[in-house]
Design a protein around this nucleic acid. Structure first.
Length: 772
DNA sequence: CAGTGAGCGAGCTTCCGCTTGACTT
């Protein structure tokens, strides 16, 4: 009975649209692309104009079948995939795979899901733009050729199962190069001087910083001493108005960044929660690069702001996208109903919704008006000046709703209100402090800041940011980790009363939380690819091929011609690298071992980076030692290598057995009678002596003894122990729960055996189902 | 959990960009 069929990409969209239309319309979803290149082979006929071989994957079979059935009975078919390159291709694949009759098939597009927009789109149907489809084919084939020729090369030259691609390899490069920048960064210290002053006849402290920083401690100290007899006078007081504007509404990338900074969400978590909100109809589509808000949203925002804060807080705005390669098929991410300021549901959903709600409304609010005041304070004994900066909010505007955060950790913050005082006024000095401050290396990437960088370079799309971040971690190129910083001494001089006192302190610097670090294999693959395929690893590669895709879409060049021009030289390089270069281990000659005179190398081996004494070809096997986690193949020195070879080291004897010290996967440890004892921060495996080692062993034994609740002479394998999560039963390497109602001290051996039996046989409890 | 590091050779791995469930734990 259906007469008209509309096909969109997402089922949530299909549901909404069908609500707006009469029963003569059926709206179905294609669930994204319905066909693609096959999984297990290249699927591109290189000799015949790069003709792609498209297949319908198993998981899409049932969708295609359903769409086909419905389309055969429909009088008119409207293909309403997104209005961008991929959407156009989806529409074309639908025609091909469903064998649609061109005469009754139409292409329609809309950028917001409102009744008006859909009706308007239906009124002027068009045809699929084959040139745009060709541009998509070029994109698809290029990515396949690059990925499926470079990856096998890596399997041969570096390690099996690795991968390379236009997007992921650049993401890894960014992280490797940032690490190198940090490694090469030379931190320098300068003395910053801050003073507290009180104006005459005022009861107010002014914090001011000196307009000069001192390189040397003695200069900083001399300055403070000069300040002892000095008079302080206000030289000038300048006030000027300023304003601050709200941030635009969210795109995928900015949502990921803010959710990471404000809520601590990973990129994948943000997308998972956003998807839930989208499917519940609470927000618009979450994979978008558009800043656009629909007319209806802007109107509703205005009404909500007017009624909640008054009309002077409202300032309807339209934002335009600046980011490279944006395709703008959707709206910005916003609540579907701006009158709903909170939702019920899981905590993560509520938090993310609130973030989106506030950001959207704030983007439609008035600028904040501020007044900035700068006071300049002169010193009678010196030429330098103290500067105090103050900022007062005259009108809060959007700040009432939302304040965007920044990645920059130590942004200068202006103080609040400063008193009105006249130039020429005298000020009393309270304390002046000169403190050493070290310059900071560039920050390591977080998942979200890496996404921002990729977007800036025009690499990847909203739908691939999260998968890309996860694939480079899955391949082992990159790890997300916390790392402790190092504490260092800070020199500080303080002037109070008439005395300059030295008062040093320590600060912890360089501690990292959930940051991305390159692994040994990540750095190695990056070096290999850069050495042979620097053009593809070029940060501008995507931008330059995108330009050609645009030319294909404009009909200026033919798609397979463009691919041909790329593939020729690329494939030559693949062949040449395959033939001419051997296995790539990143081998470096560090020098000679002073004992044997043999060569010392650093290289990547089967289980990761090692240092090696002697040649692999020699009859006598080389000696190996693994690198520590904080050491890198590219930078390790001969001295560091010889230190690694000094482990495992014999420390002494205890109870007739040898104690050895070494560094393992979990840090430094002692080994004695096949038992392991972790070394803490205070002990170094290279220098620890027998006395200290025995002390540690006995400490650990005592601790273990305290853990024992029950043992059984007839079954030495079985023990009842106190653990981190309460008492438990241990048998060999397995652990077993003790039911709450049992007293662990009184458990009999028979009862224990029954518990073990019971838990061995019963599969683990299934987790409670997720509510929907 | 605290080791390994060679080579043989079969059979496997891999890209990016659209979109959701259907599977476990």
């Amino acid at each position: 009975m259906t007469k008209k069929l509309i096909i969109v990409e997402s089922p949530a969209k299909a549901r909404t649209i069908s609500r707006y239309l009469d029963a003569e319309f059926t709206v179905l979803a294609s669930m994204g692309h319905i066909r693609d290149l096959p999984d297990g082979e290249m699927g591109v006929d290189i000799k015949n104009g790069f003709r792609p071989k498209y297949t319908v994957s198993n998981e899409k079979q049932s969708i295609v079948k359903a769409l086909k059935k419905e389309s055969q009975s429909a009088e008119e078919i409207y293909l309403a995939a997104d209005h961008d390159r991929e959407g156009e291709a989806i529409a074309w694949h639908l025609i091909e795979a469903l064998k649609l009759d061109e005469a009754k098939t139409h292409r329609i597009v809309f950028h917001e899901i409102t009744k008006g927009a859909i009706v308007k789109a239906l009124e002027k149907p068009g045809k699929v733009d084959r040139k745009l489809v060709d541009a998509q084919q070029a994109r698809r084939v290029l990515d396949r050729l690059v990925g499926f020729e470079l990856s096998p090369l890596l399997w041969k030259k570096v390690k099996p199962s690795l991968s390379a691609g236009r997007v992921q390899s650049v993401a890894v490069r960014l992280i490797v190069e940032r690490e190198e920048e940090i490694e090469n960064f030379k931190s320098s210290a300068q003395f910053r001087v801050n003073g507290l002053f009180i104006p005459e006849s005022e009861n107010f402290e002014i914090k001011a910083e000196l307009d000069h920083r001192f390189d040397k401690a003695e200069d900083a100290k001399a300055f403070l001493e000069d300040c002892i007899p000095a008079d302080f006078t206000l030289l000038s007081s300048e006030t000027k108005p300023s304003k601050r504007s709200p941030a635009p509404p969210f795109t995928t990338s900015t949502l990921q960044q803010e959710a990471s900074r404000k809520l601590g969400f990973s990129v994948a978590q943000t997308m998972r929660v956003a998807q839930q909100l989208y499917e519940s109809g609470l927000i618009t589509y979450m994979r978008t690069d558009s800043l656009n808000l629909s007319e209806q949203a802007i109107t509703q925002a205005k009404a909500v702001i007017n009624s909640q804060f008054g009309s002077k807080y409202s300032n309807p705005r339209k934002y335009t996208t600046k980011s490279a390669g944006a395709q703008e098929a959707h709206e910005a991410i916003r609540p579907t109903d701006l009158s709903k300021n909170r939702i019920s549901g899981e905590s993560a959903q509520m938090k993310l919704y609130e973030l989106i709600y506030k950001r959207t409304l704030a983007s439609q609010m008035a600028d904040a008006r501020l007044e900035q005041t700068v006071l300049t304070i002169g010193i009678s004994s010196r030429l330098e000046k103290f500067i105090a900066k103050g900022e007062v909010i005259l009108f809060d505007g959007f700040l009432k709703m939302y304040i965007e955060t920044s990645d920059d950790e130590d942004e200068e913050q202006a103080d609040g209100l400063l008193p009105v005082i006249k130039p020429g006024a005298n000020l009393k000095r309270k304390t002046i402090i000169a403190e050493e401050r070290y310059s900071k290396a560039p920050p390591r990437y977080t998942e979200a800041s890496l996404v921002r960088k990729l977007e800036e370079l025009g690499i990847g799309r909203p739908s691939t940011y999260a998968p890309t971040i996860s694939v480079i971690q899955k391949r082992g190129y990159v790890v997300k980790e916390n790392r402790p910083g190092i504490s260092r001494k800070i020199q500080q001089f303080m002037l109070t009363g008439d005395i300059v006192k030295r008062s040093d302190k320590t600060e912890n610097s360089g501690a990292e939380k959930r940051k991305l670090f390159p692994t040994a294999i990540g750095s190695l693959v990056n070096r290999f690819l850069l050495a042979h395929f620097d053009d593809i690893l070029d940060y501008k590669f995507t931008a330059s091929v995108e330009k050609e895709f645009d030319e294909i879409a404009a009909g200026k060049i033919v798609w397979n011609k463009m691919i041909e021009e790329f593939y020729g030289p690329f494939h030559q390089k693949v062949l040449q690298t395959e033939k001419e270069s051997g296995k790539f281990t990143g081998e470096r000659l560090l020098g000679q071992d002073p004992e044997s005179g043999k060569n010392v190398y650093a290289r990547n081996a089967r289980y990761g980076p090692v240092v090696q004494i002697g040649e692999s070809e020699d009859d006598e096997k080389p000696r190996y030692a693994s690198l520590r986690k904080d050491q890198r193949l590219e930078t390790i020195t001969l001295e560091e290598a010889s230190l690694l070879f000094s482990l495992p080291r014999a420390v002494g004897r205890f109870e007739e057995s040898e104690i050895t010290a070494a560094i393992g996967r979990f840090g430094p440890y002692l080994r004695h009678q096949n038992k392991f004892y972790s070394l803490g921060k205070g002990d170094d495996p290279h220098t620890i002596d027998a006395e200290r080692a025995i002390e540690l062993i006995q400490e650990k034994r005592q601790k273990d003894l305290n853990r024992i609740i029950q043992t059984f002479s007839e079954e030495p394998d079985i023990q009842v122990l106190k653990g981190r999560y309460g008492p438990y039963i241990s048998k060999g390497k397995n652990n077993y729960r003790i039911p709450k109602e049992e007293n662990p001290e009184k458990l009999t051996l028979t009862k224990i055996k029954a518990l073990i039996e019971e838990q061995d046989n019963k599969p683990k409890k299934t987790a409670s189902r997720k509510k929907r």
